[in-house]
């Protein structure tokens, strides 16, 4: 198939940037979306033009490095990561618009590459259980009901790609933050720091400049890992009860 690509090009963070149109031909439907971009880049490189920069690494849908806002949706038309999106989801002759994630907290570094270290800083604010290596109890001394373990897993499956932020009309990071808050709030290991954690993570989230939640559900609908907005409700609950009952003035 042949496609017209409208791609956001921006030399660096301070550049204004603009869309540029490209044509790619003889694209196989078995290609992944990123392989299609590889074809474009090989084409550009052969012509001596700067290739389109985009983030990607594992290309199997788990590292969360790939992004791209494709035809008005994060990770494109399917509920998966861009690297797992295949060209059979597109029509011959289609115009495909490719934009970077848009959020104040995710500044564009170049073309389609954005800086998502805000997510790292949120985890640094409390997304862990404070145990040092060694000196922990035997793994089976902490029995956890299967249902709880499974639910915690469902939250822990977040890949930190930022599609939730990209999809949200408010560029809110609630789904990402709540997934980690939920995982640790559900598990017995997370109880000790439960209140402190949610307070600190929410406050860091706000400091990074993410928006608030309007409960549109767009994040859940676009999350490649299907993380549910029930996590957001849990985080809200955790947060409100923490601020009311903790002794942090």
């Amino acid at each position: 198939m042949n496609l017209t690509l409208k791609i956001w090009r921006q030399k660096n963070n301070s550049d204004k940037g603009a869309f540029k149109e490209y044509k790619v031909e003889h694209i196989s439907k078995d290609m992944s979306f990123l392989e299609m971009l590889d074809v474009l880049n090989e084409q550009l490189a052969n012509k001596g033009e700067d290739p389109v920069h985009f983030d990607h690494d594992c290309r199997e849908g788990i590292c969360g490095m790939c992004s791209l806002y494709i035809n008005g949706k994060p990770h494109g038309p399917e509920q998966t990561t861009t690297c797992q999106l295949h060209m059979r989801s597109f029509q011959d002759g289609e115009v495909v618009t490719i934009e970077p994630w848009r959020a104040t907290a995710f500044p564009v570094l170049k073309d389609l590459v954005v800086n998502r270290s805000a997510f790292d800083r949120i985890i640094q604010a409390g997304g862990y259980v404070s145990v040092n290596t060694g000196g922990v109890p035997d793994a089976n001394e902490i029995p956890i009901p299967k249902k709880i373990a499974d639910e915690a897993f469902d939250s822990a499956t977040c890949i930190g790609c930022g599609a939730c932020v990209a999809a949200c009309k408010n560029a809110s990071a609630m789904l990402f933050v709540s997934a980690k808050v939920s995982q640790l709030a559900l598990l017995p290991q997370g109880q000790v720091e439960r209140k402190e954690r949610v307070e600190r993570m929410v406050s860091q989230m706000d400091a990074e400049g993410f928006g608030a939640c309007s409960n549109t559900g767009a994040c859940e609908a676009e999350c490649p890992k299907g993380i549910s907005v029930t996590n957001i409700a849990r985080m809200n609950r955790e947060y409100f009860s923490a601020v009311v009952t903790s002794d942090n003035i």
Partner: peptide
């Protein structure tokens, strides 16, 4: 032991 203490959600029996 270490991973469980960190909150890694390993598969569990009922």
């Amino acid at each position: 032991d270490q991973c469980v203490a960190q909150g890694v959600p390993f598969a569990r029996e009922y």
